[in-house]
Amino acid sequence: MGRRRALEGYLYISPFLAGFLVFTAYPLLASLYLSFTNFNIIGEPQWVGLENYVRAFTDDTLFWSSLGRTGRYTLLAVPFGVLFSLGAAMLLNQGFAGTSVFRTFFFLPSITPIIASVLIWIWILQPSVGVMNYLLSLVGIPGPPWVQSTTWALPSLVILSLWSTVGGSRMIVFLAGLQGVPRELYEAAEIDGANAWQRFVNVTVPLISPTIFFNLVISIIGALSVFSVAYIGTQGGPAYATYFYVYHLYASAFQYSLMGYASALAWIFLVVVLVLTVAQFRLSDRWVFYAGGESTDRGRDG
């Protein structure tokens, strides 16, 4: 009976398994193999051993610079993104009239096609004819050159990506987390004389810390994978100012047809992301609190 049920189970998941094996597992393994070859797509792969990996670390200046640039982007985009999403979720959690309308407005940018939103933002931020600098000029502020400046290009893309992600799924996850905080805890805190800030710090934050952790991990992975805004908006420029790691990977694969080298870049990237994610899990033991369960705060537990 158990065996029969197990077979049934496998039968039910077989469509997924087939798709996973063909469209994910096989390409993953193939890319691992290709990372040890010289492959220009139209010819036959030639085995080169570790040459692609060695080249990335020792003979490709764009490898390190793009990795560093991606790190800087992540350091800007993730804290602001998480904070703004949390702020938006808290506003929507107040129960004001018309909340559902605002929720829709906040969510709209995240479902706007990225191509459309980037192109519109590029026009908005155009230094000489863009709306942004025109509006700034009305209040006497000379606008910066935004995406057409090596200094401002990266922050411009951060602004652009914040617009499309702050009100998206990250905000919805926060909202769900906030709605899961028991009302009586706030009431108890109020009786104890806690003000709004104290309630936020001592009640809200600990209870939604698993949600914050989830959003943080997902946001860091997303920020490290930044590509579309640079590809559509700036083509990695000016002067490589927005030439991120995944853009370098893409250019190597699809513009220069260096598929073997690009595969090596992808596997290096996987390792980097895995290391960062594991580190976050280790650190999470110090600050993530699971309500109703064993505290993960080792210091407090002794």
Partner: peptide, 13 residues
């Protein structure tokens, strides 16, 4: 995490 990176790896194939 795995599937976030998987498309990049898969795209290279």
């Amino acid at each position: 995490g795995t599937f976030g990176i998987a498309p990049l790896l898969a795209a290279c194939q």
